[in-house]
């Protein structure tokens, strides 16, 4: 379960006349195991910021985000690192990888990092690549040379390869054609069926419907 309690977030831009931008005040919501929550609202309202706060990439100014009975706002850096490794998966909007590393290695890495053996990681990755409809001749090439849709799928594969209880998805179905979008939707459903708590940003109505999401409208939630 993820609990977001009375969270405030603002940015101070020191290099732009100390402009202070308040993103939201007093944000509250929770996500139960197996539930898919979609964050809704116009761009710039802070959907990605919420995911990043839950993941620990953004500082939480005020309030608490509780995962596994731990408050992200007060955890030390190494405790967040540990929590990420054991519990939280994050699929960013764009793939960020080192040049020249093959797609297969990119996908295997999270497993190898948490001590899985190479053989096992290889098998799992191959299966995921097949499920995601990535052509075999691309597996050993760097994803930086791929199309946007292919990169997005590699990014998802990397985020989905481990079995983690919490998943944060930043526009996972953007830049995909309808066929591949359905593949991703099915993968997300499968995760959800296994009890994974999922928070996502889905730009299209179709995905939200298919996934049967509970919507949280930030326009309403943050206007208290």
């Amino acid at each position: 379960m993820i609990e977001v309690k009375k969270v405030n977030k603002s940015f101070t831009l020191f290099n732009q006349n100390n402009a202070k931008i308040t993103v939201f005040k007093n944000l509250n919501f929770e996500v139960n195991p197996g539930e898919i929550v979609a964050l809704k609202g116009p761009s710039g309202i802070g959907k990605s910021s919420i995911l990043k706060m839950i993941y620990g990439s953004y500082i939480i100014d005020k309030g608490a985000i509780i995962i596994n009975n731990k408050n992200i706002a007060t955890l030390s850096a190494q405790e967040i690192l540990k929590l990420r490794k054991t519990s939280i998966g994050y699929v960013s909007q764009f793939l960020k990888v080192i040049p020249r590393i093959s797609a297969l290695d990119v996908i295997m890495e999270p497993l190898l990092n948490s001590g899985d053996n190479k053989n096992n990681a290889y098998k799992k990755s191959i299966k995921l690549l097949k499920d995601l409809n990535i052509e075999k001749n691309l597996w050993h090439l760097s994803p930086l040379t791929f199309s946007g849709g292919e990169q997005q799928r590699i990014n998802i594969a990397r985020g989905f390869i481990k079995d983690l209880p919490y998943l944060l998805l930043d526009e996972p179905t953007a830049s995909l054609d309808s066929r591949n979008r359905d593949i991703i939707i099915n993968l997300i459903k499968a995760k959800s069926n296994r009890g994974v708590s999922i928070i996502g940003i889905f730009h299209d109505e179709y995905s939200r419907k298919k996934l049967n999401v509970r919507e949280i409208d930030l326009n309403i939630e943050t206007k208290h």
Binding site: F11, F14, N15, K52, G56, S57, A77, L81
Partner: peptide, 22 residues
């Protein structure tokens, strides 16, 4: 400033760090 690398790089809290990142 100190912290998780992605946090310091994405949400820097100090003027100098913001300048560095930008």
């Amino acid at each position: 400033e100190s912290g998780l690398s992605d946090q310091v790089l994405e949400d820097p809290q100090q003027e100098y760090t913001q300048l560095l990142v930008s």
